[in-house]
Design a protein around this nucleic acid. Sequence first.
DNA 1: CTGAAAGCGCTAACAG
DNA 2: CTGTTAGCGCTTTCAG
Lengths: 335, 335
Amino acid sequence: MKKITINDIAKALSVTPSTVSRALAGNTRVSLKTRNRVKEKARELGYQPNVIAASLRKGKSDTIGLIVPRVNRHFFSNVISGVEEILNPAGYNLVICQSGENISKEKKAVETLLRNQVGGIILSLSVQTQSFAHLEEVVRRQIPLVQFDRINSDIPGYKVINDNYTGAYLATKHLLKEGYKRVAHFAGERKLKAYQERYEGYLKAMQEANCDLDEGLIFDNVITREAGHGTIQRVLDGGQADAVFCAGDYSARGALDGLKERGVQVPGDFGVVGFANEPFAELMYPSLSSVEQNAFEMGNKAAAAMIKSIEGGEVVTEEFLVPVRLIVRQSSKSE
Amino acid sequence: MKKITINDIAKALSVTPSTVSRALAGNTRVSLKTRNRVKEKARELGYQPNVIAASLRKGKSDTIGLIVPRVNRHFFSNVISGVEEILNPAGYNLVICQSGENISKEKKAVETLLRNQVGGIILSLSVQTQSFAHLEEVVRRQIPLVQFDRINSDIPGYKVINDNYTGAYLATKHLLKEGYKRVAHFAGERKLKAYQERYEGYLKAMQEANCDLDEGLIFDNVITREAGHGTIQRVLDGGQADAVFCAGDYSARGALDGLKERGVQVPGDFGVVGFANEPFAELMYPSLSSVEQNAFEMGNKAAAAMIKSIEGGEVVTEEFLVPVRLIVRQSSKSE
DNA sequence: CTGAAAGCGCTAACAG
DNA sequence: CTGTTAGCGCTTTCAG
């Protein structure tokens, strides 16, 4: 029941381990005949390569680390699928870590991946993250780093982001076109670029419509269902808005809950558009209009960028924009 | 920009690498003073242990592999969180692989994990899986294996499962109690124990109610939304049932869609209960009654079982039952 | 309490 | 086309 190694194959065939290693790697410098004998014997003995040993020797591994805030978010789990779809056929393995939207878990995840000598790290920042020493360390160690969605532009390397600006612009414009006049915005953590861009897209649409830009229409850091639910009450009490564009579907859901409780007619008296097109959006009553992000494609692009980084050698700083599209449902109709 | 190793620390302190290794491991056989000097110097130099090298030497790693059909299923992503909650504090890392409900991807995942010398594998079988050579290989190699949810009882090792039987029993009984007479069952792949048990729980409730057990009420392998949608048409055409207990929420959702299209009143004319309590269950209209599985706790238990396997040494075969509960919503009321 | 030495399994110069 | 040799970074006997 001993583990069988290339040495065992070598002995059985009276060749050296180097030859076996080369043969297994498909190196054409060893004769086709030998290559086949080696492969045959390997199968016969039930040989399984020890990638740990190979990684140690090569100082590199074919494992890519992926850090996401949480795997049970529709968006992130689809990104994961997208990443896998590219990475697996290319011979890379994926290790997934969760930061739980928590900076210290994020740091620990980075550290763990580095200690495991991963070949590269793909990550989306936690909302909490404000300091970036852990990312700088990755760069300093020359480990390829690809950021997606929630990124920090100051860190070198490839980045893959949604066209948040356009999505927000379209969503807001749509509400205005449907006849809503005073569109509020439930923003996310604006220190994160994704949320800042949604904010800007919203602003742009409002300015184009010559809306009197009221700071009182902007509510920062409203991303959870609870926050959405609480904030919509304040909006209704103040009476300053008749619609809201939310930077996320969860706060939109909370807002819809709150509106229902207060007996406000949606759509009609109040319009709501979210962002992310979570699976629950189409199931709600009224169904929630939302901006769909192409999570799967983001995953594809991030993985492709990672492979390029690894194989390219040098660090390239470039941002890829993934298009989004507005999905109009009931919550934002004119009536 | 060289990587710093224990040798560097050893040189800087004029001790040997062995001492550094022991000191870092907290071995009390080295003096407290030396231990502190080593740790201090390690910090100063920015030392990061190379777990790859340690794993190679020890022939074991602190990485646990987790194989799930897909991460973007509510149930599985919650299991992941539950597993992480136990594993991380215990000093283990988690590698997550997706089988995509596909036997060959599942086999490849197992192989990859073995090649990476993981310390153990936690998995839930893909629906497709009918042959188990890959699991036997894991056992043969003496790698701890913990199965959860979709398990094969013939493979040795710990198993963590839902109380599927009771859940199905309660769901079916509830429908009967609400006045539905002829309850159909949309079963899953009955070769999988989880689905077989749900089937048996259903049977038991039907028998207790002295229902004329009609084979025509049982529909095998109906787990997707599409299958549920298609099958409910046949049920309605046949007119043999006035309610259905589905082995999963997706088929229940499909059934609900189909019933709505046909203008059948739910609840009232037809009752529906699902299984899994997916997030969409409470949002549907009518909201879907379902059996909630405690995914998070399953994850906890599976992780704890894994640690026990690793630390215990010998293979213990034992099944842990995780309780479930029926959540009654609109779709199964009497009217 | 610390050191010396060997080796986990594999790869990659360098030779021939 | 194949062999020799050295070593990736760490842990662990065995000595002392």
